[in-house]
């Protein structure tokens, strides 16, 4: 394993639903600044793994440590985990439909999260500039005052990524960002994620192998199968691994 201090370390994670082991003795280490892609067939436990990291579900067994062991994520709840700098984009776009695009970003801005601040805190000019900048990055400047609910599917996906940016998260967990997007949009999403790599640590869960090739670029790819890490390595190596071909690529699907 890497000698560098790790950002996230999962060891022996197990989570079962009614006897079905969605995550089974999973070991996963992530370094600061990595852009890691996680692939695996349906039901491999990818989304459950994100649920475990973000505190949405709790494991039956195992440990989950953050920032070189400084924090035990299993002892924290959702918003505390978020406040450590772990942001998540959900599989189906989850934005506040009844709020405007700007309001969505305002709600995600890094900063104090208390009641007092929400009542009396003012939005600083720097924050306003940051929002404008993010709107530019996610190409929604023209839609700033429209309700998020009426955006197109792809735009919602981008808005959600924008919300992660506003949060200034250290770790971005991105669940199937290309789902439901056109090839053009998918490509631009890939570019966006690549431009963020380095500044943020990113974990991308994806089905679309073209997209995976675009963003991994020789970086490490993790293959999950039946809740367990099947193999790790660059995309070419992974794609030629016989076990992977058997369980995943052998019945490759682009289904969202």
């Amino acid at each position: 394993m890497s000698q560098k201090p790790f950002l996230l370390a999962a060891e022996g994670l197990t989570r079962s639903f009614d006897g079905f082991k969605a995550i089974n003795d999973l070991n996963f280490y992530l370094d600061e600044g990595e852009l890691r892609t996680v692939i695996g067939p349906n039901g491999a436990g990818k989304t459950t793994f994100l649920d475990l990291i973000t505190g949405r579900t709790r494991p039956d067994e195992g440990t989950l440590l953050w920032d070189d062991g400084k924090h035990d994520l299993l002892k924290l709840n959702e918003y505390e985990i978020y406040r450590l700098g772990i942001g998540r984009k959900f599989q189906t776009p989850t934005v506040y439909n009844d709020h405007t695009v700007t309001e969505n970003l305002v709600l995600s801005l890094a900063g104090l999260r208390g009641i007092w601040h929400s009542l009396f805190g003012k939005i600083t000019p720097q924050q306003k500039d940051r929002i404008a900048e993010i709107l530019g990055i996610i190409k929604l400047t023209d839609h700033a005052n429209r309700k998020a609910g009426i955006l197109a599917h792809g735009q919602k996906q981008w808005l959600e990524i924008g919300m992660l940016l506003a949060q200034e998260a250290r770790l971005l967990l991105v669940d199937e960002p290309a789902a439901g997007m056109t090839d053009e949009e998918t490509y631009r999403t890939g570019e966006l994620l690549l431009s963020l790599a380095g500044k943020h640590t990113i974990v991308v869960i994806e089905h679309d192998m073209t997209f995976v090739r675009q963003i991994s670029q020789g970086r490490k790819v993790t293959v999950l199968h039946q809740g367990h890490v099947l193999c790790e390595g660059p995309v070419d190596k992974v794609q030629s691994d016989e076990r992977v071909i058997e369980v995943y690529l052998g019945r490759k699907s682009k289904a969202a």
């Binding site: 973000t54 949405r56 959702e78 918003y79 978020y82 406040r83 998540r88 959900f90 989850t94 934005v95 506040y96 439909n97 009844d98 709020h99 309001e103 305002v106 709600l107 995600s108 999260r113 009641i115 601040h117 929400s118 009542l119 009396f120 805190g121 939005i123 919300m163 949060q167």
Partner: peptide
Amino acid sequence: SRFGLIQRAIRDSENRVLFSG
């Protein structure tokens, strides 16, 4: 106020608000 924004966000999607810290 921003409290009102959060309030309505809780109404519409409480889990999302929780995952916004």
